[in-house]
Amino acid sequence: MGGTSSLYIMNMALMGMGIYALIAKRHIIKKIIGVVIMEYAINLFLILLGYKTDGIAPIQDSSINAAQLAVRAVDPLPQALVLTSIVIGLGTLALMAAQAIKLYEKYKTFDMSEINRLRG
């Protein structure tokens, strides 16, 4: 388990990095990168949940019976979930990029601390 748990720790570090970029950075693009890193950390976490050392693809054919497959095959569900989550992340990213361009067009800056018309 030693290998896997260090992977989980690194995964958490990645997540922390994303949150740091999201909170501490003022540049819009860096904030967007923070959001993306965070999303990908969660995706990686989901993939790790289904991971098995020396696992095989979860397809049953004549060479393997159901019991062996259940032991050896990787979990297919997280992969399906992650694919969906990546697509959602892509949509969010496209919207964020478009908004960043529009914000730059209006405010002529990428600095979030100067974009502060709304108060109160």
Partner: peptide, 16 residues
């Protein structure tokens, strides 16, 4: 379409 949108918007901004 997203790529077209982003590249055209970006160009308008830089040309301005």
């Amino acid at each position: 379409a997203i790529f077209i949108g982003l590249s055209i918007y970006g160009r308008i901004v830089t040309e301005e």
